[in-house]
């Protein structure tokens, strides 16, 4: 059984706008998959469904064996909290909390905040020395690395990254890409939405979406 399974999934808005149209796919444990496609192709919709922030209009979405299609918001939140680590394009850190506190926030809503463990997560992304800095005192690359540390802290089944290098310069992009490669080597499952073909090619598998349909996959 795959980690993520989409069976004939459609997401229809306002009765006739098909953001996703009969898409099926499976992501296995430890796999790194990139989703690519132009704007409006349904990448974000797919990400929202897999990230338990939305439910499909048709079809079945299974995450680690759980069919989320019929879950209510509270149950979706629980699955997201337990199974998924999120990395955003715009970083999204709590501005008044330090780097280590931002990592601890994810622990706090998951179970129990553990400062020592949060520090280790920051060290893992090379930011141990910046633990007590506020987001505004960190560079874009550093902020994204804090986000990755936050995504990893609760040992999620899947890391869901939405354009993680989209707001970074070349140097920081490389650092973040290296981090994802390392995470993959360590066995993490990664689903990454990206516009950048170079980043997308690093994944084991690329899924191309257009007008809500899955056009091709290299496997």
């Amino acid at each position: 059984m795959g980690l993520i399974t989409l069976e004939n999934v459609s997401k229809i808005y306002d009765g006739d706008v098909r953001a996703l149209d009969d898409v099926s796919l499976e992501i296995k444990h430890g796999e790194w998959v990139s989703i690519m496609g132009p704007s409006g192709s349904g990448k974000s919709t797919m990400l929202n469904l897999i990230g338990c922030m939305d439910t499909p209009s048709k079809g079945v979405v299974k995450i680690d064996g759980i069919d989320i299609s019929k879950l209510n918001k509270k149950e979706l939140t629980k699955v997201r909290r337990e199974k998924i680590g999120l990395v955003f394009q715009q970083f999204h850190l709590v501005p008044y909390l330090t780097a280590v506190e931002n990592v601890m926030v994810a622990q706090y809503y998951h179970s129990m905040a553990d400062e020592e463990e949060a520090l280790k997560a920051l060290e893992r992304v090379g930011l141990g020395h910046r633990a007590n800095h506020l987001p505004k005192e960190l560079s874009g690359g550093e902020q994204q690395r804090v986000c990755i540390a936050r995504a990893l802290i609760n040992y999620p089944k899947l890391i869901l990254a939405d354009e993680p290098t989209g707001n970074l310069d070349k140097e920081n992009e490389q650092i973040v890409v290296d981090l994802f490669e390392e995470l993959h080597r360590q066995g993490h499952s990664i689903l990454m939405v990206t516009h950048d073909p170079k980043v997308g090619q690093l994944a084991q598998r690329q899924i191309i979406l257009e007008h809500g349909k899955k056009l091709e996959s290299n496997k």
Partner: peptide, 8 residues
């Protein structure tokens, strides 16, 4: 963000 991280 907090809701995305699992806050109810």
């Amino acid at each position: 963000l907090k809701k995305a991280l699992g806050a109810e």
